[in-house]
Design a protein around this nucleic acid. Structure first.
Length: 586
DNA sequence: TGATCCATATCTCGCTTTGA
DNA sequence: TCAAAGCGAGATATGGATCA
């Protein structure tokens, strides 16, 4: 899937505006024709790229990755290739032949991911932030998790490791893992962590003004970035060494560890507020409890696997104020152990590219007000102000920005459910373009709004937009965002017949009923000569009746829960060759 | 009183963008 | 990589209001 999301836009022009601060919009030229204009533009583009490289230094970064993993220049876009090459190098050293890359036809079973939960939504004060460092890589190294080491039956020098269900935490499988640290995955994982930590240590010991510093820092960044992306490669179904049992074991071990910590916290009277994969937010009563947590991890690991571990919690700091909107969505102020204060916005509209500027600003203001301990009434007052402000905003500020990730015709136009397929309206941004009679390239940025009534409309020039659907715009820009926050605060609960808007003094006018045109008198249906209802076990029926007339009968068949009236007589003759299903269809 | 309209709820699917 | 949120939208069920 290509969403082209790291940067706002990827055209040379857009990048040079962002990187070099160029503001002048260039004239559209025809690149399909050779001309002086074309030539001048190409030269200017190359000059821009040279300028950008001076600033961004992508070439040394890619060159570093290339040398370190022995990949080719042209392979730089294959993120997985760096890991793949490290794996092959290690295999060659060990004289091991690795399998080929699997293809789509090979299938490949999915594994379950991480444990995550927002235990307590709403506002919190003075809660600790903890991070489980290097969890997956250390689990691989310490438990020798590798496809070659995983057995279904007990073997020599093996330990049993359970795989649990992600949701229920019940054991669903047990594997015997041979404790052979010379397997490929543990070796590569070890190399990654070793090199990363080596350069981290060196970096911290080197004078930032010395000539070596830059090289050391670069190397640290390289190993760090490969270490971080390694899990994505190992868990990829098309990775040559992918094995769902191994990946299931890796994620399950960490889930198990976190479930254990959850229980221990509860016993001690601490509250776990939030957990996501390897990060936890704990009401630690304002004290760093990482030492205690790390002792617990050692005890658990020892008891469970008879080993010690390098997996440990890092104390990130204290959230002086924190608002948990939902899982993967929160805002807070984190006081780091070094005393610095950091504003954190995680997953909220504030961060999303497809949110409107007005939405981002309003969400930030509301959350900040609530974090400053405002009352429900004060929050409502702010929303009322926002409901007024929205009307005076520039259209771009309240419109949704978006990009096509593929050609408009490649978006799905039907949905499948079971054996049935249904027609589907085009994806909303595709509709918006069509309604506005605009075309955009894949990856090109544009905006759209709702016009009367609920009609999405794309635009380049905001003056072309008339008849904005204000009710819908308020809903998307304000109400939807406020509702989840109010729900988290328990200021609002969904109830039948109650409208959220009424909290803010707004009412939706009831649409006047459509005046029905006089209908022609109904035709009286042809009366069946003999009408009866049969509630049957269809297959049993079919066995009992050799030839049946289903004419004029109402079937109420429990098998497919369908009732049908057949008006035309039809005789099904005895036909022993015919399978039941074909009768059923007829 | 039955038929019809409408709002609402619930489920499912497609898609994007985020988190870790 | 998996998992989640958010949004749009279709299918389907349900209950109340209104109409004929």
């Amino acid at each position: 899937k290509m969403t082209l999301n790291r940067k706002r836009e990827y055209s040379v022009e857009a990048r040079s505006i962002e990187v070099l601060g160029k503001s002048q919009k260039l004239k559209e030229i025809n690149f399909g024709e050779l001309s002086v204009e074309h030539r001048t533009r190409c030269i200017a583009d190359v000059k821009d790229m040279v300028e950008m490289e001076k600033k961004l230094q992508y070439i040394p970064l890619l060159d570093g990755l290339r040398r370190l993993s022995k990949t080719k220049w042209e392979d730089y876009t294959y993120v997985s290739r760096y890991i793949d090459q490290l794996l092959l190098t290690e295999a060659r050293n060990k004289k091991i032949i690795l399998p080929m890359k699997p293809t789509k036809e090979d299938g490949g079973k999915d594994f379950e991911g991480a444990f995550r939960e927002a235990f307590h939504r709403g506002r919190h004060f003075n809660v600790g932030c903890y991070d489980l460092a290097g969890a997956y890589l250390n689990a691989i190294i310490e438990l020798c998790l590798d496809p070659a080491n995983v057995y279904e039956e007990e073997v020599e020098n093996s330990i049993p490791i359970e795989v649990t269900d992600r949701v229920s935490n019940k054991v669903i499988a047990t594997y015997y893992v041979k404790q052979n640290p010379e397997a490929i995955l543990p070796l590569v994982a070890k190399k990654l962590l070793f090199e990363k930590n080596k350069f981290k240590k060196l970096k911290n010991e080197t004078d930032p003004n010395s000539s070596d510093y830059k090289i050391i820092e670069e190397n640290y960044k390289l190993w760090k970035s490969i270490s971080l992306s390694s899990w994505g490669v190992i868990g990829n179904k098309y990775f040559r060494y992918y094995d769902y049992r191994t990946t299931s074991l890796i994620t399950s071990v960490i889930r198990g560890l976190l479930h254990f910590i959850e229980g221990e916290l509860l016993k001690k009277g601490y509250t776990l507020e939030y957990l996501d994969t390897d990060g936890a937010i704990i009401d630690d009563k304002g004290k760093d409890i990482s030492d205690w947590l790390n002792t617990l991890i050692q005890e658990w690991f020892q008891k469970k696997f008879g080993k010690s571990t390098k997996i440990l919690f890092d104390y990130e700091g204290n959230y002086e104020k924190l608002f948990i909107v939902a899982l993967t969505r929160y805002r807070g102020w984190l006081r780091r152990p070094d005393g610095t204060l950091e504003e954190k916005n995680v997953g909220l509209e504030i961060k999303r590219k497809d949110s409107t500027e007005f939405m981002k600003q309003s969400q930030k203001e509301l959350l900040e007000l609530i974090l400053n301990k405002c009352s429900k009434e004060e929050a409502i007052e702010l929303i009322k102000i926002k409901l007024e402000e929205i009307k005076n905003q520039p259209l771009k500020a309240i419109s949704f920005s978006c990009k096509l990730s593929k050609k408009p015709e490649d978006y799905a136009t039907e949905i499948k459910r079971g054996n049935k397929t249904f027609k589907k309206k085009p994806y909303i941004i595709v509709s918006a373009l069509k309604n506005a009679n605009l075309t955009k390239k894949v990856g090109e940025l544009f905006w759209w709004v709702y016009c009367d009534e609920r009609i999405p409309m794309a635009f380049d020039d905001e003056t072309t937009i008339k008849n904005v659907d204000w009710a819908k715009m308020k809903e998307r820009n304000i109400y939807n965002k406020v509702r989840v926050i109010f729900e988290a605060m328990e200021w609002w609960k969904k109830e039948r017949g109650k409208k959220f808007l009424e909290l803010f003094g707004e009412f939706i006018e009831k649409k006047p009923r459509k005046v029905k045109s006089k209908k022609p008198p109904k035709e009286t249906p042809k009366k069946a000569t003999e009408e009866k209802t049969i509630v049957c076990d269809f297959e049993q029926c079919m066995k009992n009746l050799k030839g049946i007339c289903i004419a004029t009968e109402v079937w109420n068949c429990p098998k497919n829960n369908e009732s049908s009236v057949y008006e035309e007589p039809e005789l099904l003759k005895k036909d022993n060759e015919k399978p039941i299903e074909s009768y059923y269809e007829e």
